[in-house]
């Protein structure tokens, strides 16, 4: 019982997730800066931003639903943190593995998008409303390819358990090459989920100010930022566990491999952030349904066919 509480609150739960989220945010921003040939922020920058926002005045607009407005950031962070408990960190096993945890993680990762929608919609701001509608429009375009891309490796592994998939691909490492189209789809869809640069029209600061977060300030916005940074960690860990099936029996070595995997994914995302420009929401929807979804369906067909052929 005490160990479970330690696991949930300290490692690999809330505390570790927060610290690693700040670290990965720094890596992301520093890499982005270096790719633009500038020096970039110092190492404590995400921490300073977080503390500063915690210490600032929190303004709540007069005509919003106050309890919901205050609850949404906490709800987002809670959903992301719970999702993290089902993702393997230092070995093939996650903290509380069960059959079907892949679906639960994907479901919990959808909650932030919905809270972003509610946050913008409830803040009674025109910019917030536009950002919210874009968030949901984007959800309907990337979510289906992302689910198919993460579930098609599960078809080949014949399990809905993330740790089961990890064990399967560790036993058959070459099979992961068959999932290359799914990996490409997942990396692109992840950028839609995290609202990163090619798909950041929901919070496009140059046209709709800050999208859903336009009325959030101070402490509430700090929690939202932390939740977004934590979402990056969870998504990177999930993609690392599914698409880079390298695990070690030694927990320390396994943890190092985990850090390496997430850093690789964040590096890929940072490169995309610096070489791409924002695309319009209609272009985003068209791209996702015209190219990403068929590619993901192709991957599912390939995996279904291979399942009958390959010796498993």
């Amino acid at each position: 019982m005490a160990l479970a509480i330690f696991n949930i609150l300290v490692f690999p739960g809330f505390l570790f997730l927060s610290v690693y989220a700040l670290a990965l945010e720094y890596v992301d921003r520093k890499m982005y800066a270096r790719l633009q040939n500038r020096k970039g922020p110092p190492w404590f920058q995400p921490l300073a931003d977080f503390i500063k926002l915690l210490g600032k005045e929190t303004i709540i607009p007069a005509d919003v639903d106050k309890p919901v407005f205050k609850l949404l950031p906490v709800f987002t962070l809670a959903a992301v943190t719970s999702a993290f408990l089902y993702v393997p960190i230092w070995g093939t096993n996650s903290l509380f593995p069960f059959e079907g945890d892949l679906i639960v993680v994907l479901y919990l990762l959808t909650i932030p998008t919905l809270t972003f929608f509610l946050a913008g919609w409830l803040s009674n701001s025109l910019y917030g409303a536009i950002g919210s509608v874009r968030t949901v429009t984007q959800l309907f375009s990337y979510e289906v390819p992302l689910f198919m891309a993460l579930l098609s490796p599960a078809i080949l592994a014949d399990t809905w358990k993330i740790s089961g998939m990890a064990e399967f691909y560790q036993a058959h490492p070459l099979y992961i090459l068959l999932n290359l189209p799914a990996f490409i789809v997942a990396i692109i869809a992840i950028q839609g989920k995290l609202e990163r640069v090619p798909f950041d029209s929901p919070e496009a600061e140059t046209e709709i100010v800050a999208g859903s977060f336009v009325e959030y300030s101070g402490r509430l916005f700090a929690i939202f930022r932390m939740a977004i940074a934590a979402e990056l960690v969870v998504v990177a860990s999930l993609a690392g566990a599914i698409f880079f099936p390298v695990f070690a029996a030694n927990p320390w070595l396994g943890f190092l491999i985990y850090l390496l995997k997430t850093l690789i994914i964040v590096a890929i995302l940072a490169v995309f952030k610096s070489i791409m420009a924002r695309i319009r929401i209609d272009q985003m929807v068209m791209f996702c349904w015209r190219y990403l979804a068929p590619l993901a369906i192709l991957q599912i067909i390939i995996n279904l066919l291979l399942k009958g052929v390959l010796p498993i």
């Binding site: 500038r38 922020p41 500063k52 600032k56 303004i59 800050a210 336009v214």
Partner: peptide, 21 residues
């Protein structure tokens, strides 16, 4: 612009006054 790199000092351009200092 990247030439002057204000992010060295932690500065970010924000669109909304709610986030700005």
């Amino acid at each position: 612009t990247p030439r002057y790199d204000v992010e060295r000092f932690g500065m970010l351009l924000k669109g909304t006054p709610r986030h700005a200092d």
